[in-house]
């Protein structure tokens, strides 16, 4: 079997036949799912301790579970991509990653703006408290005109 045929079967190049779902997982799948299971356990531990923010916690759980499902069952991603008219699961993953990157950038930009605002308020408060008025210092060269 040529390299092209191998790539076609796994869906890397177009024209390939979708691989039959394999009941045995690859080494990569085992490693990735073990890692994601570890993350899930950590999330659950945080929730039990009560230190997790509820809204963000659910979002993170959803992301880890979706990622685990996509790795364990790549054919699910392919069928979802076909349903959406994208055809290839790899393309769907790429589009989702770009969209997620964009949303994440906006989220961090909004956080940066909030942080900048806090620094501004603090600096302003300090500046006003430490303001120097004309009568504070008698070295002013010019006198106030009536």
């Amino acid at each position: 079997m040529t390299l092209f045929q191998r790539l076609a079967i796994v869906g890397v190049v177009p024209g390939g036949v979708a691989a039959e779902p394999n009941s045995t997982m690859t080494l990569f799948q085992w490693l990735a799912i073990t890692f994601l299971a570890g993350l899930l356990l950590l999330e659950i531990w945080e929730a039990i301790r009560g230190s997790a923010q509820r809204s963000v916690w659910w979002l993170r759980i959803a992301v880890w579970l979706t990622t685990a499902a996509a790795i364990a069952r790549p054919e699910w991603v392919t069928s979802l991509a076909t349903t959406l008219g994208i055809h290839r699961g790899a393309d769907l993953v790429t589009y989702a990653a770009v969209l997620l990157l964009f949303i994440t950038s906006l989220y961090f930009y909004a956080r940066y703006l909030r942080l900048q605002h806090q620094i501004t308020v603090l600096t302003r408060r300090m500046a006003i408290l430490e303001a120097r008025r004309p009568h504070d210092d008698e070295t002013s060269e010019q006198k106030v005109q009536p």
């Binding site: 620094i119 501004t120 600096t123 302003r124 300090m126 500046a127 006003i128 430490e130 303001a131 120097r132 008025r133 004309p134 210092d137 070295t139 002013s140 060269e141 010019q142 006198k143 106030v144």
Partner: peptide, 27 residues
Amino acid sequence: AARFPVCVVRHAINLGQGAALQTGLDF
């Protein structure tokens, strides 16, 4: 500025003209 009979309000760090204007208005 301190050589003139004016109030001097100094930001500890550079924030930008917009921030400086708001500080001036607040003061």
